[in-house]
Amino acid sequence: MALPLTDPSITPTERQGLEEFLDYFRQVVRRKADGLTPEQLTHKVASSSLTIGGIVRHLTLVEESWFVEVLQGKDLSDPWASVDWRSEPDWDFDSAAGATAEELLEAHARSCEHSRRILAEVDDLDALTARGDSGGAKFNVRWILIHLIEEYARHAGHADLIREDIDGQTDD
């Protein structure tokens, strides 16, 4: 059974549009994982190492990384905090193997809800993040939302191809 999909408003304010498009692509990616078995979640297409399970786990990290670590300036929680990212740079993608869709989607939903709560506390899209890039330049909240829309849309496309290869599903 496919998860519901809510289209963004066609006449939004700037902030409403950014938040609704981010939520839209969050939903699209979640729909790609919905109902898959652990084996299907590790399915790969051609020479790519991407899997739907890995994409969902990666986007769960992306949520916490951008909203907690960069925007708020706080440390990541576990499991992310205990990963040796230098020796396992793709841990988020690789560690999803063996997880169920329910486990991955539940963790992702919690992470998205936490991001929404953090974002609700921000009044100004021009507010700068607590942490910056490697050169120290800080991002504004608008940039984070635009970046996350791009990140989710790109991975939604990857997930589209993988899901179609698994069972022929082509909606969204």
Rank of each mutant, 00 (worst) to 15 (best):
T100R: 06
P4T: 03
L125I: 06
F139Q: 00
V45R: 12
P8F: 05
E164D: 09
E63D: 04
R163C: 06
T13Q: 05
F93L: 03
T42E: 04
L18V: 01
L59D: 08
W91L: 06
S134H: 14
S82R: 14
P38I: 09
E20I: 04
R30N: 11
A97D: 04
R163Y: 10
D7C: 10
P79K: 00
E164L: 10
A96M: 03
P4M: 04
K138L: 03
A127Y: 01
L3F: 02
D23Q: 12
C112H: 11
Q16M: 10
I144L: 12
R154P: 02
D160S: 01
L61Y: 13
A99T: 13
V68C: 04
K138T: 00
L105C: 09
S134E: 14
Q27R: 03
E69H: 15
I162T: 08
N140Y: 03
Q16W: 00
I166L: 07
N140R: 08
T129Q: 09
L22T: 11
E103Y: 03
Q72R: 15
R15A: 08
W91H: 11
I55N: 05
D84S: 12
M1T: 00
R26D: 05
A81L: 10
E113K: 15
F67I: 04
G98N: 06
D78G: 14
H114T: 15
A33K: 03
Q40G: 09
I144Q: 03
L5F: 02
A137Q: 13
E103H: 11
R163M: 02
M1K: 08
D94T: 14
D126A: 15
V28D: 09
A96H: 05
D78Q: 14
L119S: 09
H43S: 05
F139V: 01
R142I: 05
A127T: 13
I162G: 11
A137T: 13
R86I: 09
A81W: 01
